[in-house]
Structures are given as structure tokens and as C-alpha cells.
Design a protein around this nucleic acid. Structure first.
Lengths: 259, 259
DNA sequence: TTGTGATAGTGTACATTTTACACTTTATAT
DNA sequence: ATATAAAGTGTAAAATGTACACTATCACAA
């Protein structure tokens, strides 16, 4: 993939030569000044959202190394040279929580020239949603400490992570109304009350119970299960599950989720 | 900003040392393997949308250099080491069209490992909207040729630019319904019929005239001007303009644009 | 100047969607 | 058996969205 890469390290002002097709063809060659190429660091940062039944929480790590040692930060890491962006983000979260195939979406890339004290490192930010029931956080070599925060608990973070976090919360709020993301934060089988509480937590406003149930059931991709909630103090609630296949079929017919 | 950078070129396996605060403090130092750092190329690509009164058009350039010489491509360029992402995108479009302060939004970052034949170059994609009345395209040192395309006219583009373009069109369609972007594509003063045609072109479906006018005027941020359209063949239409200040005030009151 | 043609501009009735609102049911725990 | 706490359900009024067809105005040409 990368050719003549040895040229890169021979000296600071060496240009990288690259030819396409016939190497004799002068026209097919061009020079790119090294100064302009392969100068950037690249990282991914993940805003990992969870839901404990009451509140939306965000997983942060306490940095164990400089820069920003002992600051709390979004989990993130440098991208490996042969790794896709999504793969890097998945890797970060797998190392941290042990979960594979986390639901994840890219939200924005942050690239201010001075955002990293070490040099020009740009970062691609993702939001990730997990079912809290599953997670098991692990300390990593980069982190002293790992902890779930509610939004108001979050203080000053490392790098530009406050800005990234704000963007992530904003995107979660807007996307959760137009895409069926909420289910990623609940157990596979959930009650309608759990779902409603989740939406109320994300959108930060109360929702009328009957209206909510009518709307969400009318969309016709929730399947009512025979089993009911166990371990409830009082009357147990019916369990539902999100039918991905049915949702896909609806999409094909031009349906758009909206809440 | 970047310290000890000379280390970078001394040899392939040298690590970059960085210390924060007191250099005596061992704890505050850490090593990053060179292999993982400053390995990436970074570019921006712009999807430049224009509207000729009938159809949405996209500006493409014909590449004059390898790779993908003589393919059509989105305008883009490598980001300078000390340049912010937005600044780079603005520069690309200023060089191409002579316009400064183009309306622009980041849409997504594309970073597949094999997307660039030269090496690992990731690109941050933007959509940009301009008033066609103003533009004056210029050939650049990178481009043989510059031309507006309608969407169906676009063939196979360089790199992964078809994928980027599709994403851009998708984002334009969804954002134009939730943000007052359309006005960026029309002259400062425009008629309601022009505005309607624009929406019909972007959303690719007919809209009822009376419904459209009622909706858009009810939002209360369009100002009817005294002057009327000139150079019309038949009855001239009233001109309107978008009142940015008024729109801002509405936003503060919790209003959300929706069409 | 007058007539004609093309586009601008307007209002209403009906259908749909959204909202607000309070009581009954059910399983559990005592 | 009974008390309790949470689950679950329907309707009417308001607001919003949609469909639809004619009149008004100016430019141009005769």
C-alpha cells in the first residue's frame, strides 16, 4: 500500500516519489513534499453511554500518564497504522470493557492545531451505546481508574474532551429521536416503562405515558413477549423486544422512525 | 507546540520523548513509539453544492496529477501542519472559486486504510453551499478542469469520492429540513417560488405551493422586501430575505426549524 | 391602448396527528 | 384475605397538515 516509504525517514526534506502505471512515464510521477505528508497523529475517542434505569451515564478514565496525567478523559487511543477508524474505536472499548461489537457511530472529527500538547494529533470522536448489564470495566495500562459519571458530575477533562463530550450528548439527543438507538442501552428484553424512562433521561423532559406507548407500539417493530418481568416488587410488566428484521422491512417501505 | 521533534527523523525506531512540568520527574515522562505517531496524512474534501434555479449541482475537478490522474474528484487538499480543518477547507474553496467565508459544515471523516494509494491518508469531508451567482471557478495547479455536475452526470470518481459524495447528499437532504441552509444557495434576495424549487430539487419531490408558503412564512424569519423581482418575463414576484438576527432570537426562545 | 398569456399569489374545508387527562387491573407482600 | 404499588388502558378536544382551484398582476405584442 505505502510505497517508497523508506524515503520518509532518510532526511527531513526528502520528497516522497510515487509513480502509477509505467514508471518510465514522467507524467505519471509526482512529488509530494515530506513536510506536507505523514505529519499527523490520529486517534479515536469514544463517548460511552450507559443507562442505569434512572440516568444516562458516561464512562471516563483517569489518565495514568502525561500529558494530562490524573485528569479524567474520554477513553481513546492512537489508531494503528493499518487499522480502520471503526476498528480502532472498537478496540479501545473492548480493551476497556471486554465487550465486542459495541454499537457505535462516528460523530465528528476534532483537529484544532493546539488540541494536543505533543503535536498535531487529530481525533475522530464516536458515540457508543452499551447495555450496562454487560459491562465489566477494566483498568488499562493507560488508565489508573475507570468510572461512570452522570453528566453533572463531569468536571474539567483532559485535552478538548469537554467539547467532544458536549457534541456527543447533543448528537445522542438528536439521533435518538430519529433512529432506534435507545434499545442499545436497554437489556434485550425490556418493559415499556424502562424505555420511557430512558427517553425521558436522554431528552431531559417528561413524556406522557399513554402517548408514548401508543406512539412506540404504532411503529410496529416492538414484539411483545410471553414472559413478564421477574423480581418486580409489585405487578410485573410485560417484556418487549426490538425486532431488527421488522424494522429493516419498514425502512424499505419508506418508514422513518421519529419520536 | 511540538517538542523534541527532531527525534522523529533520527531513525525509524526512535521513540518520541515528551515531558510535562519538571523534566527531572520520571513519572511525568513517557515514550510513544514513533511507529504509532505522526504517521498519517490528513486531507480535507469539499462537496460544493450550487443551485441554478432548476437543479442541484456539484463542483468537481479533473485531476491533473497522479494518483487518479484525469479522474474527476471532489476538490480537496492536504491540510497544512499548522492549519485548522475548517481553515483548510475554506482555503481549498477559496483557491478554486475565489469565494471567502463559504458556508460549510463537517460531515464525516473517511479513513479506510487503503483509501489512498500513497499511504495512510485520512480525509475530513465537508459540505459547502454557495450562491451560484457569485462563483467564478479557477483552474488550479492540481486540476486540469473544473465543472459543475448534476448528480446523475457524476461517474466514477477518484479515491473513495463516490462514497463521500453520497454521504454528503444524504446529509444535505436531512440537514436542509432541520436547519435554514437553503438560503445559502439562493441570492440574498429571493422569491418564494425560487425557494420552493430549491427544496423540491434537494428533497426530490413536489411540494404543494400554498402549504409551502404558509409553513415557511409562519416561521417568521423571512422579511418581505419592497422591491420586486426584475427581469421577469411575466408578473414579477415579491422578494424576501432571510433575517439571521430574527432566526437567532427564535432559536433562543426554543424554536426549531423544521420543514 | 388594449388584449392576452404566463406566472404570482391567496383561503377554506377536511383529515390526520397530537395532546391532555384519570381510572382500573394485577401480582406481590404482609 | 387484603393492602399496595406499579402496570396498563381510551377518549375528546385542539392543533396541525394536506389537498385543492381560482383570481390578480405585470409584460409584451398587436
Amino acid at each position: 500500500m505505502r510505497r517508497d516509504i523508506d524515503e520518509l525517514v532518510k532526511g527531513k526534506n526528502v520528497a516522497l516519489r510515487f509513480s502509477e502505471g509505467n514508471p518510465e512515464d514522467e507524467q505519471a510521477q509526482y512529488l509530494i513534499p515530506l513536510e506536507d505528508f505523514f505529519q499527523f497523529g490520529l486517534s479515536v475517542d469514544c463517548i460511552l453511554f450507559g443507562f442505569d434505569g434512572q440516568e444516562i451515564k458516561i464512562l471516563l478514565i483517569e489518565r495514568g500518564v502525561a500529558p494530562y496525567k490524573s485528569y479524567w478523559a474520554l477513553p481513546g487511543d492512537l489508531v494503528y497504522p493499518n487499522e480502520d477508524l471503526n476498528a480502532a474505536a472498537q478496540r479501545v472499548l473492548e480493551n476497556l470493557t471486554g465487550i465486542r461489537d459495541v454499537f457505535m457511530q462516528q460523530i465528528k472529527t476534532f483537529g484544532k492545531t493546539d488540541r494536543h500538547p505533543l503535536g498535531r494529533v487529530i481525533t475522530v470522536a464516536f458515540i457508543a451505546l452499551i447495555r450496562v448489564e454487560h459491562y465489566e470495566t477494566r483498568a488499562s495500562s493507560w488508565a489508573d481508574n475507570v468510572r461512570w459519571f452522570t453528566l453533572p458530575e463531569v468536571g474539567e477533562l483532559a485535552f478538548d474532551h469537554n467539547e467532544i463530550l458536549n457534541k456527543g450528548v447533543e448528537k445522542l439527543k438528536s439521533r435518538v429521536r430519529r433512529e432506534p438507538l435507545g434499545f442499545e442501552l436497554l437489556p434485550i428484553n425490556f418493559t415499556l416503562n424502562q424505555l420511557q424512562k430512558l427517553y425521558e433521561a436522554i431528552l431531559d423532559r417528561p413524556i406522557d405515558k399513554r402517548t408514548f406507548r401508543k406512539k412506540i407500539l404504532a411503529m410496529n417493530f416492538l414484539v411483545k413477549l410471553d414472559e413478564k418481568q421477574t423480581k418486580n416488587t409489585r405487578r410485573p410488566a410485560c417484556l418487549y423486544t426490538f425486532d431488527q428484521t421488522r424494522y429493516g422491512e419498514l425502512l424499505d417501505k419508506g418508514f422513518t422512525f421519529e419520536l
